[in-house]
Every structure is written in C-alpha cells, then in structure tokens.
Amino acid sequence: PAHPYDRLKTTSTDPVSDIDVTRREAYLSSEEFKEKFGMTKEAFYKLPKWKQNKFKMAVQLF
C-alpha cells in the first residue's frame, strides 16, 4: 500500500511503522514518486544503487 511522503521521510514526526526502511521510496504512490524524484519508479530502479541512494538522500528517504 502507498503511504504519504510526509510519513515516509526520515525526518517524519509521524513515521509509518512496519515498512522496509531500506526501501522507503517503494511505498510512495506513482504520482508522488514522480513528483519527488522526477522519474518513474521503473526508471529509478534501473539506475545504479549508488545513484538511487544519492536521489533518496536528496529527498530524505535514506
């Protein structure tokens, strides 16, 4: 299930529990994912792991 970005980011005051914290981005809706990352999930997962992590750090999901 998708969760709002505000509850997934590492600085959230009301974090979602029971998620894989190493894959926070996977819980974003497709729309919100595209808004935050500027690309689709499919394109994101084709990137090298280090680049994925760099993007995730930039949007507080790492």
Rank of each mutant, 00 (worst) to 15 (best):
P1S: 12
P1C: 14
P1E: 12
A2E: 15
A2S: 15
H3C: 14
H3Y: 15
H3L: 12
P4V: 04
P4L: 11
P4G: 09
Y5C: 13
Y5S: 09
D6N: 01
D6M: 00
D6V: 00
R7E: 07
R7Q: 09
R7V: 08
L8G: 04
L8C: 14
L8I: 09
K9G: 06
K9W: 05
K9L: 07
T10L: 08
T10E: 05
T11Y: 04
T11A: 05
T11N: 13
T11S: 12
S12L: 07
S12Q: 04
S12H: 05
T13H: 11
D14L: 08
D14A: 07
D14P: 05
D14T: 07
P15E: 04
P15A: 04
P15T: 04
V16F: 07
V16I: 10
S17P: 14
S17G: 13
S17H: 14
S17K: 14
S17A: 13
S17L: 15
D18P: 06
D18H: 06
D18C: 14
D18L: 08
D18I: 03
I19E: 05
I19W: 08
I19M: 05
I19V: 06
I19F: 05
I19Y: 04
I19T: 03
D20S: 03
D20V: 04
V21Q: 12
V21D: 11
V21I: 13
V21P: 12
T22M: 07
T22P: 03
T22W: 05
R23G: 03
R23I: 10
R23K: 12
R23F: 09
R23Y: 04
R23Q: 12
R24M: 11
R24Y: 08
R24S: 06
R24G: 04
R24T: 12
E25G: 02
E25T: 04
E25K: 03
A26H: 08
A26W: 15
A26K: 11
A26C: 14
Y27F: 02
Y27D: 05
Y27V: 04
Y27C: 13
Y27P: 06
Y27G: 04
L28C: 09
L28W: 03
S29C: 10
S29K: 03
S29A: 04
S29E: 05
S29T: 13
S30M: 14
S30Y: 11
S30E: 14
E31D: 12
E31G: 09
E31C: 10
E31A: 12
E32L: 02
E32M: 05
E32I: 06
E32W: 05
E32P: 01
E32D: 12
F33S: 01
F33T: 01
F33E: 01
F33K: 00
F33G: 00
K34H: 13
K34L: 15
E35T: 10
K36P: 01
K36S: 02
F37W: 02
F37P: 00
F37T: 01
F37E: 00
F37G: 00
G38K: 10
G38E: 06
M39T: 01
M39N: 00
M39H: 01
M39A: 00
M39E: 00
M39C: 09
T40W: 04
T40Y: 02
T40I: 05
T40H: 07
T40K: 06
T40G: 06
T40V: 06
T40A: 07
K41G: 02
K41R: 10
K41E: 09
E42T: 09
E42P: 04
E42W: 05
A43R: 10
A43S: 11
A43N: 11
F44W: 04
F44N: 00
F44A: 01
Y45R: 07
Y45V: 05
Y45S: 06
Y45Q: 04
Y45W: 06
K46A: 13
K46Y: 05
L47D: 00
L47S: 01
L47M: 12
L47R: 00
P48I: 01
P48Y: 01
P48R: 00
P48G: 00
P48C: 03
P48N: 01
K49V: 13
K49D: 09
K49Y: 08
K49E: 11
K49P: 10
K49R: 11
W50Y: 08
W50P: 02
W50H: 04
W50Q: 02
W50A: 05
K51V: 14
K51G: 00
K51R: 11
K51C: 15
K51S: 05
Q52E: 01
Q52I: 01
Q52R: 04
Q52F: 00
Q52G: 00
N53K: 08
N53Y: 09
N53E: 13
N53M: 12
N53A: 12
K54C: 15
K54E: 15
K54A: 13
F55T: 06
F55E: 07
F55R: 08
F55M: 15
K56S: 02
K56Q: 01
K56D: 01
K56R: 10
M57K: 14
M57E: 13
M57P: 00
M57V: 11
M57Q: 11
M57T: 07
A58R: 09
A58K: 12
A58D: 11
V59I: 12
V59N: 11
V59M: 13
V59G: 02
V59H: 10
Q60F: 14
Q60M: 12
L61P: 03
L61W: 13
L61N: 10
F62V: 15
F62W: 14
F62N: 15
F62S: 15
